[in-house]
Design a protein around this nucleic acid. Structure first.
Lengths: 151, 151
DNA sequence: ATACTTGCAAAAGCTTTGCAACCTT
DNA sequence: AAGGTTGCAAAGCTTTTGCAAGTAT
């Protein structure tokens, strides 16, 4: 499930399963989401759309996609909701630069899945999911050490 | 560093180190934070204050506490900033109920610290920190299975 | 034809900022 | 006394909602 096309098709399938209509704005939104593996902020998402559409529509759509389990809302940075497709095999472990904000996917987070099982067993919580963010300063920003850029 | 008093004293020490003044509103805010191990939303924090104070003051204070490394902003739920003291030994791994919103601290997240080291080594990121949230339905909410309560 | 969706506009929230008065150091 | 802080009010954003018109099924 790696190519944007595959991811898009998967999402469209889910949309139909959820009895949501495949409208023009929704096509654009799903395509934009399918192109990005890392979570995208709503602002960025709006910019990425092939065809502009109303903010209200984007918000409403994201809400429905979330309900339908097609999209996950990730709370990486304060003050902006970020979203990502939950295509099969997708991870939700990220490495975020505190300085430039770049978000990378973290592929090898097996230990967390292990931990998740333990937590499920001990806590009695059901339907467990997780989300991990590692924050730090990326190599690029370590080089550009302008102290003023750092918040 | 377990008792609220110890945590409060620690925070006050940091405040002085950061050359921030110990005003009345700041005392209240730090005390409220020291009483809670789990992250508190701003709304809740405001309610917990012994003495009411202006929202603007709370926001400005949280901003400074964050800058001074006294407080961590956690993005547990969308639409509300949550804060917690970063007293020594404090963890940042949580178990959150998707239904009732209760937040519990997760004490045994060793594997994540291991992973953090690996990630630091491989990625070249510096000053790595992490934040993990496990989401699920808590035992209580599993019992009260009113489907309408679940979003 | 039906009823789900969209855009526009307005409302509602949350967060930030300006400024004079106030209080800690 | 000096300057960091506060409260109040207003401005800025982000997110939500109402409604008539538009469109996928």
């Amino acid at each position: 499930m790696d190519s944007p096309t595959e991811r898009y098709e998967w999402a469209v399938g889910c949309l139909k399963d959820a009895q949501l209509r495949l409208t023009r704005p929704r096509q654009c939104i799903l395509r934009a989401l399918a192109n990005q593996k890392a979570p995208v902020s709503l602002e960025r998402l709006a910019d990425d759309l092939e065809e502009a559409c109303d903010v209200a529509t984007i918000y409403r759509t994201m809400h429905r996609l979330r309900q339908a389990g097609i999209v996950r809302q990730v709370n990486l940075a304060a003050h902006c909701a970020c979203f990502t497709l939950i295509a099969p095999g997708e991870r939700c472990d990220y490495l975020v630069c505190r300085d430039c904000g770049v978000i990378t996917d973290l592929p090898d987070a097996e230990p967390i899945l292990e931990l998740e099982k333990q937590v499920a067993a001990r806590s009695g919580f059901r339907a467990l999911e997780h989300e991990t963010e590692f924050y730090g300063i990326c190599p690029d920003c370590q080089r550009n050490t302008n102290p003023l850029r750092h918040r």
